[in-house]
Design a protein around this nucleic acid. Sequence first.
DNA 1: CGTACGATCTGCT
DNA 2: GCAGATCGTACGA
Length: 213
Amino acid sequence: MKLDLSYYQKNDVVSLAKDLIGKVICTYINEQFTSGIIIETEAYAGTTDRACHAYNGKRTLRNEVMYHDGGKAYIYLCYGIHYLFNVVTNIAGIPEAVLIRGIYPLEGLEVILKRRNIENFHFHLAFGPGKVTQALGITILQNGIDLSQNTIWIENRGFFIPSEVIQVGQRIGVAYAKEDAFLPYRFWVEPKICSEYLKNCYKSIIGGKKANE
DNA sequence: CGTACGATCTGCT
DNA sequence: GCAGATCGTACGA
């Protein structure tokens, strides 16, 4: 169920970014369990990617964990306000990562609503990278943690997202990366579409059948 | 040491 | 649709 470290240590960050769509990210933070289906990701492809924090081999205190073995959390503060959560991929020395940009809340909705300071559920509740970390309770305190432990981890629950509903496009907010800003490294499923597939999964669970594996 | 700038979100128009 | 919030990091002097 829980993805192990070998999953993250593969050598194709773009494929991993797409494969993470439909997986379930879980957190146990401040004694509270919350989770959501990953519905938006972006790949950041190491030292040759102008949009990547490790472009041209840049290595600082902030991005140090990108240079570690895959399967760790790379978290940083963006625009002085929002924490952004990345999964480090590949092996030590090759600084690649997947930014988790959107989730569809699955468990702990009450906690998520409280953390987001929102009254009622709506589709875009955690669609956007700053909303994801707020919903899941992630801050800079979790930077560098190991995703095979029990604070932040990702599971395969067998939710099947058909390839035809996964959209592909340019990454958001990286105009400074010049030509690399046009690379098709962003993957997403509209939250409303995701909810339709969720209904199907729940139906099959209720019917005594396991969700698609 | 000083300054510029974000892998964004919200609320108001 | 747009401006304002807000602060750590990076980088040059």
